[in-house]
Amino acid sequence: MEVRTIKVFTTVDNINLHTQVVDMSMTYGQQFGPTYLDGADVTKIKPHNSHEGKTFYVLPNDDTLRVEAFEYYHTTDPSFLGRYMSALNHTKKWKYPQVNGLTSIKWADNNCYLATALLTLQQIELKFNPPALQDAYYRARAGEAANFCALILAYCNKTVGELGDVRETMSYLFQHANLDSCKRVLNVVCKTCGQQQTTLKGVEAVMYMGTLSYEQFKKGVQIPCTCGKQATKYLVQQESPFVMMSAPPAQYELKHGTFTCASEYTGNYQCGHYKHITSKETLYCIDGALLTKSSEYKGPITDVFYKENSYTTTIK
């Protein structure tokens, strides 16, 4: 009895394709271990004539594949690729409408935090270190965002349907971005203890939790000093293409032309909904596939993004 075979390709990165001759009487799992086709788990399936010449994702289970996976995804987590594939199996079914010149995501599976993050990423200057993220990001900007969303979920250790947080998501993504040249110098002034300067680099240099107003941050924000008295913390120097200011959701007025974009969060910790506000020729609110415009805006804002380049204080 002759062994019926077909020729397929296996890959971990969709760049390096490895030619395989597979036995049609055995499952993919018996031949390769966990195997995925377009995100779908085909591990328990036997090869079919229609699979001839198709590319299958496999887990990096030998040295060659491990090197290829690390170079593309910059992670050695053995569960990463499987999590990416199972997320992709959902995100490829989502709709990605162009809204006001940006790629958004039609609401499904509690994905409003991903839509808000995706919209924000198209408006701030950011370059990702893992080629996987950078490639998928370019495709997302062009309207094909399924891979990018699935990668975000995998890097953030999230599953489809789980509630997510924009600030946490951005923080994970910033860790995989090139923020080497970003720098922030802060000064804390206390009447009792004097003053202390701190220099922050990388992710810490672009994120701040405690106030939404970048102007206020430049002037000074009140913080408790270690001595128990009130101290003032203010920005001395900022070198970065953008800054992200966050605070627990509270009524906040966004003035046209003073910011790049913002995240609105309605609801409580267990259950809520994100919308995205962007400042173009007027203010726009993007909620999944829905767009509304207004000249002014007041609502429960939790993150505001500002364009920056270089700032030095005039406070002496």
Rank of each mutant, 00 (worst) to 15 (best):
L200D: 11
H256Q: 11
K93R: 14
D287G: 01
I315D: 15
G272K: 02
S279L: 04
H256P: 13
V206A: 02
Q270V: 12
M24E: 13
G33W: 03
Y234G: 04
K275W: 10
T103E: 00
T120E: 02
Q134D: 02
T198W: 10
K316P: 15
Y265L: 00
F70D: 09
L114R: 01
K44L: 12
Y311S: 07
G161K: 06
S79Y: 09
L88R: 03
E308M: 08
Q20Y: 09
L283T: 03
Y137V: 06
K233D: 03
G143I: 03
N129C: 08
T35F: 15
Y269Q: 15
Y265I: 03
Q31M: 13
G299V: 01
A262R: 02
Q237T: 11
R4P: 13
M209R: 11
A146L: 02
M207G: 03
G143Y: 03
K191M: 13
T192K: 10
A250T: 15
R184T: 06
V3N: 13
K307E: 07
T260P: 02
Q30S: 13
A247N: 03
E52V: 12
K95F: 11
L59D: 12
R184C: 06
H48E: 15
Y28S: 02
D23E: 13
L37C: 11
S240I: 01
K54N: 12
F305R: 00
Y137K: 02
N309K: 13
W107C: 03
L118N: 06
G194W: 02
T11Q: 09
A132G: 09
K275L: 06
S294W: 15
T278L: 08
Q197E: 14
Q237D: 01
F174G: 00
E281W: 07
K280P: 02
L65K: 08
A205L: 03
V189S: 11
T11E: 08
V99M: 13
L121R: 04
E144T: 07
C271R: 15
S50C: 15
D63I: 11
E168S: 08
P130K: 03
G210P: 00
G82P: 13
D135F: 08
L59S: 12
E253S: 09
P47G: 07
P60G: 05
L153N: 00
M85L: 13
A154Q: 02
Y137F: 13
M207F: 03
T260A: 09
Y252M: 03
G210C: 06
S279K: 00
M209F: 15
L291Q: 01
T120V: 08
T226F: 10
A142M: 15
Q238I: 03
K218L: 03
L102I: 06
A262D: 02
G39L: 07
N16M: 15
Q30V: 11
V42C: 14
K127E: 14
G82L: 14
K191Q: 12
A154D: 04
F128V: 03
K183C: 10
N16Y: 09
K7Q: 15
T302S: 07
M85Q: 09
L254D: 01
V304W: 07
E68Q: 13
L114P: 01
Q30E: 13
K293S: 14
T266H: 06
N147A: 11
C261A: 01
P131T: 05
D303F: 00
T260N: 00
P34C: 12
D23Y: 10
K229F: 06
Q270D: 15
T27F: 12
A40S: 12
Q195I: 15
N61D: 12
N178F: 05
Q222T: 10
Y214T: 02
T199Q: 09
A145G: 10
P224D: 13
Y297F: 11
C112D: 05
Q216E: 14
A150W: 05
Y234F: 09
L163G: 07
C112Q: 09
V67A: 14
D38M: 12
K93Q: 14
L186M: 14
A117K: 03
K158M: 02
D109F: 04
C156P: 03
T159L: 05
E264F: 09
T199C: 13
S50H: 10
A115N: 04
Y234S: 08
D62Y: 09
G220T: 04
A115P: 02
G164R: 06
H273D: 00
H276F: 14
T313E: 08
K191V: 11
K229I: 08
N110E: 07
S246E: 06
C227A: 01
I124C: 06
V236K: 06
A247I: 07
T302G: 02
V203N: 04
T266E: 11
Y252D: 05
T116P: 03
Y36T: 03
T91M: 05
K255N: 06
V99L: 15
N147T: 10
H276G: 01
M209I: 12
L59R: 10
H74F: 00
E281S: 01
T35R: 00
K93V: 11
P249C: 03
A117M: 11
I286N: 00
Y265G: 04
K191F: 07
K106Y: 12
L163D: 04
K44P: 12
V58L: 11
K219V: 12
T27W: 11
C190K: 01
A231K: 04
Y274V: 05
V8E: 08
T278M: 12
S279M: 01
Q195T: 15
D165I: 02
V206D: 00
G194T: 03
T211P: 01
T169P: 06
Q175T: 08
P131M: 04
L290V: 12
K255F: 06
F217R: 03
V22F: 04
M244P: 00
K54I: 12
Y73A: 05
Q238L: 02
N61R: 11
K54L: 14
E125I: 04
M245N: 00
T120Y: 10
G257H: 05
C190I: 03
Y208E: 04
I124M: 08
S50K: 13
G39F: 10
Q238H: 00
D13G: 10
T232V: 14
Y208S: 04
Y234Q: 07
N89A: 12
I301W: 06
G33I: 05
R83A: 09
T226R: 14
A289E: 15
P97F: 05
N16S: 06
T75V: 11
C182L: 04
Q195R: 09
L153R: 04
D303Y: 08
E68F: 06
M207C: 10
L254S: 02
F174D: 05
A117T: 10
R66H: 09
G194K: 05
S279E: 02
Q122C: 06
E308Q: 05
N157H: 07
G101S: 06
I6G: 05
N268P: 14
T19R: 14
M26Y: 13
G143D: 05
N14I: 08
S279A: 04
M245F: 14
V166Y: 12
T91L: 03
V166L: 07
